[in-house]
Simulated assay, not measured.
Amino acid sequence: MLLKVILCAYAQGVVSSRGIERLCREHVTFIALSGDSVPHFTTLRASRNLEALLAVVA
């Protein structure tokens, strides 16, 4: 779920965790992608860091 939200936000030029969190609360597309749940910005930040770590390891 978070990967879809993060990739869609990046495609629209939103890269900050707080901005992505705001999109999940206010934008219909992101509400649908997130399954009507609003991830906390620290969760988004942690998942981005995890993805970067996995990219380096793989």
Rank of each mutant, 00 (worst) to 15 (best):
residue 1 M to F: 02
residue 2 L to P: 00
residue 3 L to T: 15
residue 3 L to V: 08
residue 3 L to A: 10
residue 3 L to I: 08
residue 4 K to S: 12
residue 5 V to F: 01
residue 5 V to L: 04
residue 7 L to Q: 06
residue 7 L to V: 00
residue 7 L to W: 02
residue 8 C to Y: 00
residue 8 C to M: 10
residue 9 A to P: 02
residue 9 A to R: 00
residue 10 Y to T: 03
residue 11 A to G: 07
residue 12 Q to T: 09
residue 14 V to E: 12
residue 15 V to F: 07
residue 16 S to T: 15
residue 16 S to I: 01
residue 17 S to D: 06
residue 17 S to L: 01
residue 19 G to A: 08
residue 19 G to Q: 10
residue 19 G to M: 08
residue 19 G to N: 09
residue 20 I to L: 05
residue 20 I to G: 03
residue 20 I to N: 04
residue 20 I to M: 07
residue 21 E to Y: 01
residue 21 E to P: 06
residue 22 R to Q: 13
residue 22 R to T: 13
residue 24 C to I: 09
residue 26 E to T: 15
residue 26 E to R: 13
residue 28 V to H: 06
residue 28 V to N: 09
residue 29 T to P: 00
residue 29 T to F: 08
residue 29 T to N: 06
residue 30 F to T: 05
residue 31 I to E: 07
residue 31 I to W: 02
residue 31 I to G: 01
residue 33 L to D: 00
residue 33 L to V: 07
residue 33 L to W: 03
residue 33 L to A: 01
residue 34 S to H: 08
residue 35 G to F: 13
residue 36 D to E: 15
residue 36 D to F: 14
residue 36 D to V: 07
residue 37 S to D: 14
residue 37 S to G: 08
residue 39 P to F: 05
residue 39 P to G: 03
residue 39 P to R: 05
residue 44 L to R: 02
residue 44 L to D: 03
residue 45 R to Y: 06
residue 45 R to F: 04
residue 45 R to G: 06
residue 46 A to D: 09
residue 48 R to Y: 01
residue 49 N to Q: 15
residue 49 N to F: 11
residue 49 N to A: 15
residue 51 E to R: 13
residue 51 E to H: 14
residue 51 E to T: 10
residue 52 A to Y: 10
residue 52 A to E: 11
residue 53 L to P: 01
residue 55 A to V: 06
residue 55 A to M: 11
residue 55 A to D: 12
residue 55 A to T: 13
residue 56 V to L: 14
residue 56 V to I: 15
residue 57 V to S: 12
residue 58 A to S: 11
